[in-house]
């Protein structure tokens, strides 16, 4: 049975809080991983799984399901937490993140855990795969029965393949494709505008032929309305440029470059959980 969606912003905020707490706990236990980018994308992925995607956690291979591809694979903790909280696997399993033999690899592996649509980790590859899936939906004799969503990082947009894929999605008019960009403004080496400036982003995507929607990536009303507008697009793929805060929700992690690829230590876990209430 399809997962029951709930677009109530209050409900989604409460879920996002649970997800953020899961992320902190998972990363704290794992001792390594990407904290900042997992927290910045939390509201986007929460909205997708709890209020947008047509999916069935009890039947991950449902042919008509909407697909979600985490192109920024290092945000895996957020994806795993959402998959666990929607019922793809047990919440207890989250504590195995990054351990030997775990189904929850450092970056998503489609063959190791249910609910993962593609293996990612090497940046820039998810959008191309999402295009292939969106075209596959269109090739079905009965017409496209599903939509395809993918989430990229703004640093990831440095990769040339993203723009190859962007060109091809518009060329083939993939209106069942929606890309979201987690624009947290930071990449490993520093601010995206200083490391490799990709602005003006909206103009770039427009020039590539996309339907562009810019939003606050932490406002559920804006996220849901953007997703609804994406659904209405005709012969054109949609990109949602979501302005976010890296490390969102934990004061000492927010906007700190150094928190890109490290996990909280035990005392930091405690402090973070105190803030996430």
């Amino acid at each position: 049975m399809a997962f029951e969606l709930n677009p109530d912003p209050g409900f989604l905020s409460r879920q996002a809080l649970v997800i953020r707490r899961d992320i902190i706990n998972m990363l704290g236990r794992a001792g390594s991983g990407h904290t900042g980018g997992s927290l910045s994308m939390t509201d986007l992925i929460t909205a997708l799984y709890f209020a947008e995607l047509k999916h069935d956690p009890t039947n991950p291979a449902w042919p008509d399901r909407d697909r979600f591809l985490l192109s920024k694979g290092h945000g895996a903790p957020a994806l795993y937490a959402v998959l666990a909280r929607t019922g793809y696997f047990s919440v207890e399993n989250l504590s195995t993140l990054r351990q030997l033999g775990s189904s929850l690899q450092g970056h998503p592996d489609m063959n190791k855990s249910p609910g993962i649509e593609c293996s990612t980790g090497s940046l820039g590859q998810g959008l191309s795969m999402a295009c292939g899936m969106a075209m596959a939906a269109r090739l079905r004799e009965s017409g496209p029965a599903y939509r395809v969503y993918t989430l990229l990082g703004d640093g990831e947009l440095n990769e040339g393949q993203v723009w190859e894929a962007a060109m091809s999605a518009a060329h083939y008019g993939l209106d069942n494709l929606c890309a979201l960009v987690d624009c947290n403004g930071l990449q490993i080496d520093g601010e995206t505008c200083r490391i490799m400036n990709s602005e003006p982003l909206a103009d770039k995507w427009k020039a590539f032929g996309w339907n562009v929607i810019s939003i606050n990536g932490h406002d559920f009303n804006e996220i849901l309305s953007a997703l609804a507008r994406a659904r209405a697009a005709v012969r054109q793929p949609t990109v949602i440029l979501a302005k976010t805060v890296k490390g969102k929700g934990v004061s000492f992690i927010e906007n700190q470059v150094s928190w890109h690829g490290i996990a909280p230590k035990p005392d930091e876990v405690k402090k973070a959980l105190e803030e996430l209430k």
Binding site: Q125, S128, C131, G132, A136, M167, S168
Partner: peptide, 18 residues
């Protein structure tokens, strides 16, 4: 795919996964 081999392989992966 035009002159874009990396994107071509990605599309192929997505089609194969479907």
């Amino acid at each position: 795919m035009g002159v874009a081999e990396q994107n071509m392989i990605g599309w192929a992966a997505g089609l194969a996964a479907s």
